[in-house]
Design a protein around this nucleic acid. Structure first.
Length: 926
DNA sequence: GCAAGGTC
């Protein structure tokens, strides 16, 4: 009995022959003169050996004669019949195939002598289809041949023997589904490609003879790039505010992050800040130390390899895959096209790790794993049941250049997977200042473990704060700071690979090709910034995407929906819920409708491309061009996961368009002009912000009190929203008032969003705004949270006022005088003055109005001695007397009494609310 | 001159 086994590729044929024959197979090629058996294709081998295949499958007596061979993937490729190949012939009709003759001839030659055919293609949808192609070819030579299908998920001896002895039937549903996919892709691709090319090529000379191809994977891929580009263009930075707290410790400066992160309502932020300023003492609520773990990476899939290759090795996804393919063929790496991120339970790790002992770079680490450091890799969620995760299969010591780098990455990743998680200890300190919570955390790494061999991950120690629960202290810095949401980045190749993978565009093996294709078509230009490659749509790419979007389809040609729908229908065929014919008809009908609409409205597409390319065809009523977007470095917001070594484009406010890329387009959301977002504000900016702050506060308050709306958390467009990343000292270049009117992240004591209300009842408070718990007053769970909108012009947030207020002033006791502002209604409201910074009872007599000439006392001209830590940085409660030449009470501005006797001020103080607020950020409790 | 999916 003769059995013909056909695998999908030569490597699998070799592997399964080796297992089934226990290494005793003979590989045959034809010598044309001797007429011995032949393998007509130079890559294909035929392996012959006897095998014990028990009945009823095998012979009743003796072994079966097995021949194992392979194809090279799909056996046929599709093309249109001759009459449909002309481009002016609409081509949504039948197609024919172009055979791979040499491969086919080999199959037929072997099939003629065989009693049974066993299909050994990969166990996925495409594999079933390739199997059906093999069956078709073999039956042409031997129509009585029995056909079976071997099911296996890994090239492991037990599985291969089991698959051979217990074959199943070919799943024709899966093969049918792929048939539909092939037919649709060809027809849709050809129809739209011809429509676009013939409709645009001759009317836009700039296009030359370019083919303007359409593909159901190409266009959604292009759509991702254009979408992100437009998000970047349309981005308008939004200003937020937060309270920044800092304390000096022997270990260094400890920075605390506000639990609210930041607020988009400045008035709300000011209110909370004022509370902190008025009661600045911090109490340590908790000090929590617990183990911290940095997880070792998951086993490597193709998509991961491409993303990492792009991010860490700075190689195009296609290049990484090409190199991995080459290393696979050389026997250094396992099969590089796999979706699997879990190793089989029988996987032989030890053998493979031992092969790495000799490497000078990671050999010692590998030795450590063998000597007891090994820990089984984590299991991911994916398993294609065909191939293991990518791993090294042999040590490669002579590689150079990019091949060496790819091999090194794969090997280090594998060893890291076989190691243990990195271990550390984190300490989190939470403090309470006037009911607001702030925290800081430190980390001590105890064992680097896998990090020793995997330098691509970063994890470093940070200062561990030394605080004790219940401890109180006055922060060295307590400031309200301003930041802005960050502009998102353009897509990197790695981002795009991730998006395509997530949306089911292409397969792990073809994703890189689709990206390369849209670059080749000049829809997208790669822009290198540092070592990171960003993708920018060209004028042509944007024109096409926008043109289709303007035409408006139920399911856009530039979005993943159509492709997903095709995938879904294919699954229906696989599940036996729909027939191949019905699905093909339904899909063709759907695409035909889209095609007819595109053809009918082609002028819209043409005009879009022409306009984008700066050419002709602009219609009246078109939106105006928008000025260039604000520049600045974005630091997130696109969902992409930039690695540590990736920097965003340093456009510095410039235009990141590539040659041939479009001018920014109108979208009605643009913000004219704009300044770069700065990560750190300078003193000058901080100082000049004072006036603007007051104005904005007033504006914010006015808007907030005009409406009643629930406060809500706002998430900035950038990832750098936190004080530590998006921080800038309060500055005047924000988008004034833009966000203050749109809700605030004020939380009540329940931890829920508070609501802002305005007093409507007649009386002294009518019109005043306040924040309160959102629950009904009658609700027993109402936390009674209540904060009024208070005058905001007194809030000052800058610490060093040199630039804004002139040179520093020094009091009689040689301390840097502190600047205060009168905010009580009266003739001096708004006036700033300076006084001794010492605590109440220790202050000297120094007093100066800011708007009056400086004292010429010698003390004021001398530089002060350096202040000790925590000394001279805070003000005491203001309690001065009218300064020289000023006969008015400085608290209320009235004449005839001293401040200590000021009734108005004393009344206020009785209520526990100081009458003025210091303008520096360093405060001591009054 | 068109697609996407296998493979070398």
């Amino acid at each position: 009995m003769k059995v013909l086994c056909v695998a999908e590729k030569p490597s699998i044929a070799k592997s399964i022959s080796g297992i089934l024959s226990s290494g005793g197979a003979t590989s045959c090629r034809l010598d044309s003169t001797s007429m011995q058996r032949v393998s007509p294709h130079r890559y294909i081998r035929n392996y012959d050996f006897p095998y014990n295949l028990p009945p009823p499958l095998g012979p009743n007596h003796g072994d079966a004669d097995i021949t194992v061979t392979s194809v090279l993937g799909h056996l046929t490729s599709s093309d249109f019949a001759e009459q449909y190949r002309k481009w002016d012939n609409e081509s949504d009709t039948s197609y024919t195939t172009k055979d791979l003759k040499q491969v086919e001839r080999n199959l037929q030659q072997e099939a003629r002598r065989a009693d049974m055919l066993i299909i050994w293609t990969d166990c996925d949808r495409e594999g079933e289809h390739i199997g059906s192609e093999i069956v078709n070819v073999c039956r042409q030579a031997n129509r009585n041949i029995r056909v079976k299908r071997a099911k296996f998920s890994a090239i492991i001896a037990a599985q291969i023997h089991n698959a051979c002895r217990n074959p199943v039937e070919l799943d024709m549903r899966q093969a049918d589904a792929v048939d539909v996919r092939i037919s649709l892709d060809l027809r849709v691709g050809a129809a739209f490609t011809r429509l676009q090319t013939m409709g645009l090529q001759n009317r836009l000379p700039d296009l030359g003879q370019k083919v303007i191809s359409y593909g159901p994977c190409q266009f959604p891929t292009l759509g991702f790039v254009v979408d992100q580009y437009e998000r970047v263009q349309a981005f308008v930075p939004e200003t937020f505010w937060y309270i920044y707290v800092e304390q000096q410790r022997p270990e260094g400066v400890i920075k605390f992050n506000w639990r609210r992160n930041h607020l988009f309502d400045m008035a709300a932020a000011i209110i909370l800040y004022e509370q902190c300023v008025e009661q600045p003492e911090a109490t340590v609520r908790s000090v929590v130390t617990k183990p911290a773990t940095k997880w070792k990476p998951l086993p490597l899939t193709t998509v991961d390899l491409q993303k990492s290759g792009s991010r860490l090795l700075h190689m195009a996804p296609k290049k990484v895959l090409d190199i991995a393919e080459k290393l696979y063929q050389q026997g250094f790496l396992s099969y590089p096209r796999t979706e699997t991120d879990q190793f089989d339970k029988d996987f032989d790790f030890n053998h493979l790790i031992q092969k790495q002992h000799v490497d000078p770079g990671w050999g010692a680490f590998a030795q450590g794993l063998t000597d007891g450091g090994f820990q089984r890799p984590r299991n991911g969620q994916k398993n294609d049941k065909a191939h293991p995760p990518i791993h090294p299969t042999a040590h490669a010591g002579t590689l150079q250049g990019d091949e060496k780098r790819v091999y090194e990455f794969v090997t280090r990743r594998f060893l890291a997977c076989c190691s243990t998680n990195a271990e550390g200890k984190s300490t989190t300190v939470e403090i309470d200042i006037a009911g607001e919570y702030f925290s800081t955390a430190g980390l001590v790494i105890i064992a680097r473990n896998y990090l020793e061999v995997y330098p691509y991950d970063k994890w470093s120690d940070s200062i561990v704060p030394d605080f004790a629960q219940g401890e109180t202290f006055i922060p060295a810095v307590c400031e309200m700071r301003e930041g802005q949401t960050s502009r998102p980045n353009l897509l990197t190749e790695a981002d795009l690979v991730g998006l395509m993978d997530k949306n089911g565009i292409g397969t792990d093996a073809t994703i890189a090709e689709h990206i390369a294709k849209i670059v080749e078509r000049e829809y997208v230009v790669e822009k290198l910034d540092g070592r990171t490659k960003y993708l920018v749509p060209s004028t042509l790419g944007i024109g096409l995407v926008d043109g289709y979007n303007q035409i408006g389809f139920d399911r856009s040609l530039t979005k993943p929906h159509l492709r997903r729908e095709t995938e879904h229908r294919m699954q229906l065929i696989c599940d036996g819920l729909e027939s191949k014919r019905d699905v093909l008809e339904a899909s063709l009908t759907q695409y035909r409708e889209v095609f007819i609409k595109a053809k009918r409205d082609f002028e819209t597409l043409y005009n879009s491309v022409a306009r984008s390319m700066g050419g002709r065809g602009i219609q009246a009523g078109d939106v105006a061009r928008r000025p260039p977007p604000p520049g600045g470095r974005g630091n997130g917001g696109n969902g992409g996961n930039n690695d540590d070594d990736d920097g965003p484009p340093s456009d510095g406010g410039g235009d990141e368009r590539p040659p041939g890329a479009p001018a920014p387009r109108a979208n009605g959301k643009g913000k004219a002009g704009g300044k770069p977002t700065t990560a750190k504000a300078t003193k000058t900016k901080a100082a000049t912000a004072k006036t603007a702050t007051a104005k904005k506060a007033t504006k914010a308050k006015g808007k907030a009190s005009a409406v009643e709306e629930p406060a809500s958390h706002r998430v900035p467009n950038g990832s750098g929203g936190g004080p530590s990343s998006g921080s800038a000292m309060l500055q005047a270049n924000g988008s004034a008032g833009a966000s203050a009117s749109t809700g605030a992240a004020m939380l009540c004591k329940c931890g829920d969003a508070a609501v802002h209300r305005t007093v409507v009842k007649e009386g002294a408070n009518k019109g005043k705004g306040f924040w309160a718990c959102a629950k009904a007053m009658t609700d027993a769970t109402n936390c009674k949270f209540f904060i009024t909108n208070r005058p905001t012009q007194r809030a000052k947030t800058s610490h060093d006022t040199d630039e804004a207020n002139g040179p520093k002033r020094f009091c009689t006791c040689k301390q840097e005088a502190l600047r205060w502002t009168v905010h009580k209604e009266g003739p001096n409201c708004g006036r700033a003055f300076y006084k001794c910074p010492k605590p109440q009872g220790e202050q000297c007599e120094f007093f100066e109005w800011e708007d009056e000439p400086k004292s010429e006392s010698p003390a004021a001209r001398r530089a002060p001695p350096p202040a000790k830590a925590g000394e001279g940085r805070f003000s005491g409660h203001s309690q001065g007397k009218p300064g020289a030449g000023d006969s008015k009470c400085y608290k209320c501005g009235r004449s005839g009494h001293w401040a200590t006797n000021c009734d108005y001020a004393n009344k206020v103080e009785e209520r526990g609310k100081p009458s003025y607020i210091k303008s520096t950020s360093r405060r001591r409790r009054c």
